Amino acid sequence: MKIALFPGSFDPVTKAHVDIVKRSVGLFDKLYIGIGVNSSKQSFLSIEQRQEMLRAVFEMEPKIHIIAYEGLTVDFCKSINANYMIRGIRTVSDFEYEKAIAQMNHALAPDIESIFIVSKPGYSSISSTIVREVLKHNGDVSQFIPKEALEHLKANRA
Rank of each mutant, 00 (worst) to 15 (best):
S43Q: 06
A155L: 14
S124M: 14
E52P: 00
K2C: 06
V141P: 01
T73I: 12
A16D: 05
D11S: 03
D29W: 00
I89Y: 05
A158G: 13
S40F: 01
L153N: 10
V13R: 06
Y84N: 11
E98D: 02
F95D: 10
A82R: 00
K22F: 06
K78L: 09
D75P: 01
Q143H: 13
E52Y: 00
E151T: 14
H106E: 13
A102Y: 00
R157S: 15
R50W: 11
S79F: 03
H65D: 11
G71E: 05
A4S: 09
A102Q: 07
F76M: 00
E98S: 03
D111W: 07
M1G: 14
Q103P: 03
S127N: 10
S142D: 04
S43M: 11
F6N: 04
D111S: 14
H137Y: 09
F44D: 09
K147W: 08
P12L: 11
F44W: 04
D11K: 00
H152N: 13
P110N: 07
D111C: 09
V21H: 12
L27E: 05
I101Y: 05
L150Q: 09
A82T: 06
G88M: 01
A100V: 14
A100D: 12
L31D: 04
E151H: 08
L27V: 01
H106D: 07
A102K: 02
I112K: 06
I80A: 09
P62E: 13
S43R: 12
S46D: 08
R23Q: 09
E52M: 01
P110W: 05
A82H: 03
E98K: 04
K63G: 01
N81E: 13
Q51N: 10
S9Q: 11
I47K: 02
S124H: 01
S127G: 15
F28T: 13
L5P: 01
A149F: 07
D94E: 03
H65E: 15
R90P: 00
S93W: 00
V57K: 05
N105M: 06
D11E: 03
I33F: 08
D19E: 15
I64E: 11
Q42E: 14
I47P: 01
G36C: 06
L72D: 04
E61H: 07
F116M: 08
F76Y: 11
R157E: 14
Q51Y: 05
I35T: 12
S39P: 13
S46W: 09
V74Q: 02
A155K: 15
V141N: 00
T129H: 05
Y69H: 11
S142C: 04
R157V: 07
I89K: 03
E70R: 12
F95N: 10
G26Q: 03
V18Q: 15
Q42F: 01
N83Q: 11
E96Q: 14
L27H: 04
V25H: 00
E96T: 11
N138F: 06
D29N: 08
S128E: 05
F116G: 09
I112F: 05
K30V: 13
P62D: 12
I35E: 01
L153V: 05
V131Q: 00
A56L: 10
F10K: 00
V131P: 05
T129N: 14
N81I: 02
S24R: 07
K147N: 08
S128G: 12
G139A: 01
V25F: 00
H17N: 08
N156A: 15
S40G: 10
